[in-house]
Design a protein around this nucleic acid. Sequence first.
DNA 1: TATTGTTATACTCTATAACTATA
DNA 2: TATAGTTATAGAGTATAACAATA
Lengths: 156, 156
Amino acid sequence: MTNPEKSPVPPAVIDDSTLRLFIGYHMKRAFNVVQADLTQTLKPFDLRMLTYTALVLVVDNPGLSQSQLADAMGIERPNLVVILDELEHRELIVRDRAPTDRRAYALKATLAGRRLYDKAVAAVITHENRLLASIDDATRSILIKALSEVREHQTT
Amino acid sequence: MTNPEKSPVPPAVIDDSTLRLFIGYHMKRAFNVVQADLTQTLKPFDLRMLTYTALVLVVDNPGLSQSQLADAMGIERPNLVVILDELEHRELIVRDRAPTDRRAYALKATLAGRRLYDKAVAAVITHENRLLASIDDATRSILIKALSEVREHQTT
DNA sequence: TATTGTTATACTCTATAACTATA
DNA sequence: TATAGTTATAGAGTATAACAATA
């Protein structure tokens, strides 16, 4: 729990009795580690977590609109624009016009986008398995299920 | 792997088959919900997640140095300075000089700081219990333990 | 009127380099 | 020389308001 040999100033034995009841702290710290690992994993593909997530969702859900994608990613529509601009300029996705609604786009991945997706997803799976090595499959299921339930709680 | 063609633009049934293997996505979405709730909960106390976390750690670990606190919070030292400036200006904490090392500070909470801590912690516990209502105690323990293990994996 | 995508903008959080004063 | 705290700064990520085109 603590970090023994380290600094000259007191060893710092952190009393996290209160933090035990503070789930946001644990989620933030764990997410930081996951994101740091993810950033390194995605660097060879020139992707960040946001561009990777957008690419994955577009490949798996062709025809998605920007509003739907922003909603799936949990970000506001304006913030998605630059993310998709980047993917489009790199010719990984295209913004087709939606046939039924001329206001909306139908997002689709290009062949290059699907190829990058295949390689990046494989790398991410490998790295995440290493990151979660100490956590057995049953616990991983519980973890993901619990996180999903928290997300769906969505109080506002 | 992909999705059958469905509604033109509307309801959006997201295929998250790939995301299921992408723990960072679930952690980010869940953390967003927790932080949004936390932000609202702390607003009456004029605290943000970072100032709240710093206050909690200082109250529970009096005499902590800024380096130790930054380490415990998972942020860099420079970013902690403004956080502590704010808490100090509000007279919730003090920066005493460490007796053994004149470079370092020994951080301590004031009486006002401990009083705000009491009220804020109570509010946070109440709100988190509501947020985690659908998750039983055993699962909560597994969740926190799994998150801690991920944090301690710390690749870099 | 309402919605899609867009621009502009501001705020928070984060990371790095370089400085000072101590060690 | 190394460490503690600080300053300055730049980069992400996020949120809101307002607009044009379309519904």
